[in-house]
Nucleic acid binder design. Structure first.
Length: 558
DNA sequence: TCACCTCACACCTTTGAATAGG
DNA sequence: ACCTATTCAAAGGTGTGAGGTG
């Protein structure tokens, strides 16, 4: 591939060619070239399920980002045993005496790296039906909490701040791509981020989206690193690469590395293919990465669906929404009947995954889905699930990401970590993905640049596990990710140099893990609020990404 | 009043440990 | 002992709709 701008087949609007970078490049990025990075010249990326995406795009894709949902993460990502708190439907809240103090607020604050804990709720404490008891302080302590005065010598009970469970949502459709043209033995890192399309806030009025004002301050930028990363070109090319477990939230306090978006704003996912070093040190070659954009994956972030057509499409195609499909006397049917104007789209004939035999799935996918059934060659003995996937990285582990200014005035970012690189598993999508695939593909709009300072140099960052790995940026201070992040100035450079901040390692979901659960790491600092015309109206991503360079160093809280 | 958000809910799929059988 | 297939309860994902909030 010669670096030409390719148009997405799903695009409905003309996309200008990428402008001359020398005119649009960021300050301090003068040394980049127009040359396609070596090893990425021939990369082609095809969007799977393009037909489905186009249907959504035509109707105006919406993605739920509200806190509502059933996937619950907890503000305390680990306990001393490396276990996560119980979750989801097993989670209950039990009352404690109102006057019981919150004895370890300071300790919890320190552990979580949060300077300001949310308001305490004196009435609530998490309890586990399994444990048959309220959580003890040791359940949540990354390190021993100060002993509490207990007259009877019993284990002290820790009051948990009333941080709500963090509800998150996946994207649907999820982004799946087929990649070709990679160097077979070269290792690559697949990264996805979601950037605002413009600086507007929208409203849905009279069955259409219209600008409702200026955009709200951008959420802190985060990126989703495919859990297979780094992997060889052969690995990436032999399977469809899925970003199924990319999750969205509007929770400003999100501490789990989920991508945070503003409701009623328009966003564009982007795929970055970053060339890593050939060893297991996860060292990125500074200049080798390319970005791919599929314009039909643009979506509006909403807390509840605005367009009934989108609702219907989701119901029709998402297996988890099967219960709302028409036909029988389902809730959806009842709802549909109650809604006079509800446009009922004739039901298609989706093949139900549940009707397919269980067993070994197709392994021609690289998903962020679980690994147990996606790794035929790996039994569960190879991928022991932690209690629930939390704290899979020793607390003593650290990942360092440092920012240095090079001679050209650009920021160079680096990561470092100290965990082992486990075997690279085979991966596969769940059946739903294969079933949903309509075999249609779209070649992305390609934006490529070779700025050595844009993406982090992940020196020595070994894949802590094969699960979701997120990179979350930080504010311009030393606050933890667990602290309320500060909105980035859309036009600021985003970060100061050589700063440290704490990084929680956490996870969600039930995935098998090799070396831990999902790990969420601070990100390189992508612009969350792009400059005018970001990607969607011709301004190259080069311009946007390059504006935010530099990453602070980070460290696991000790 | 309105737009937007939250949350509990029912329904469904997926997961993965346990078990059975070869 | 090992492997594969099956079972099933738990976990997780979905949109709904009433109610809350500003």
């Amino acid at each position: 591939m010669s670096g030409e701008l390719k148009e997405s087949a799903g695009s409905e609007r003309p996309r200008p060619r990428e402008p001359d970078r020398k005119d649009d490049g960021p300050p301090g990025a003068d040394d980049r070239t127009d040359a396609v990075p070596e090893g990425l010249e021939d990369v082609k990326v095809e969007l799977q399920d393009a037909g489905l995406w186009q249907r959504f795009h035509k109707a105006g894709t919406e993605m739920i980002i509200t806190k509502a949902g059933r996937s619950i993460c907890y503000p305390f990502p680990f306990n001393v045993r490396g276990e996560e708190p119980p979750r989801t439907r097993d989670t209950q809240f039990t009352s404690l005496p109102k006057n019981e103090c919150s004895p370890n607020r300071d300790a919890l604050s320190r552990i979580c790296g949060v300077s300001q804990l949310p308001t305490w709720n004196q009435d609530l404490n998490w309890a586990s039906p399994r444990l048959k008891r309220p959580f003890l302080q040791t359940d949540f302590a990354a390190q021993p909490l100060p002993a509490l005065p207990q007259a009877d010598g019993s284990s002290p009970t820790v009051k948990i701040p009333s941080m709500q469970p963090v509800y998150i949502r996946r994207m649907f459709p999820s982004i799946k791509v087929k990649v070709t043209g990679l160097q077979p033995k070269t290792k690559y890192i697949f990264v996805m981020d979601i950037v605002a399309v413009d600086s507007h806030r929208y409203k849905f009025n009279e069955s259409k989206w219209s600008v409702a004002g200026k955009a709200e301050p951008a959420m802190p930028g985060r990126v989703f690193v495919h859990p297979d990363s780094p992997a060889t070109g052969t690995h990436w090319m032999k399977q469809v690469v899925c970003f199924q477990k990319l999750k969205l939230t509007n929770n400003y306090m999100d501490t789990f590395g989920h991508i945070m978006l503003n409701s009623m704003h328009k966003y564009q996912p982007r795929l970055h293919i970053v060339q890593a070093s050939e060893n297991n040190k996860f060292e990125l070659k500074k200049t080798c990465f390319r970005t791919f954009v599929f314009h039909e994956t643009e979506f509006m972030a909403v807390t509840s669906y605005q367009n009934h057509q989108i609702t219907q499409l989701k119901i029709e195609h998402n297996p988890f929404a099967k219960g709302f499909r028409g036909g029988d006397d389902t809730e959806f049917s009842r709802s549909a009947r109650k809604s006079i104007n509800y446009p009922v789209i004739p039901r298609s004939n989706p093949v139900q995954a549940s009707l397919l035999p269980r067993g070994r799935p197709n392994n021609n996918y690289a998903c962020s889905s679980n690994m147990a059934d996606t790794c035929p060659s790996l039994s569960s003995n190879h991928y022991q699930q932690t209690t629930a996937g939390y704290n899979t990285v020793p607390l003593g582990s650290s990942i360092q990401m440092t920012t240095q200014e090079n001679s050209g005035g650009c920021m160079q970012n680096s990561f470092s970590g100290n965990t082992d690189l486990g075997p690279l598993p085979k991966r596969a999508c769940r059946e739903e993905d294969r079933l949903l695939s309509d075999n249609s593909v779209t070649t992305s709009t390609l934006t490529t640049w070779s700025n050595p300072q844009i993406l982090p140099n992940m020196e020595n960052l070994q894949p802590l596990n094969r699960e979701t790995c997120m990179f979350a940026n930080s504010a311009n201070d030393n606050t933890s990710l667990l602290a309320a992040p500060q909105p980035l100035d859309p036009l600021s450079t985003g970060f100061n140099n050589n700063q440290n901040f704490s990084v929680p390692f956490s996870s969600s979901g039930t995935g098998f893990v090799s070396n831990g659960g999902m790990n969420f790491l601070p990100s390189c600092s992508y612009a969350q609020m792009p400059q005018q015309g970001l990607g969607m109206n011709g301004t190259p991503f080069l311009h946007e990404v390059s504006r935010n360079v530099g990453c602070p160093s980070m460290q696991i809280p000790q």
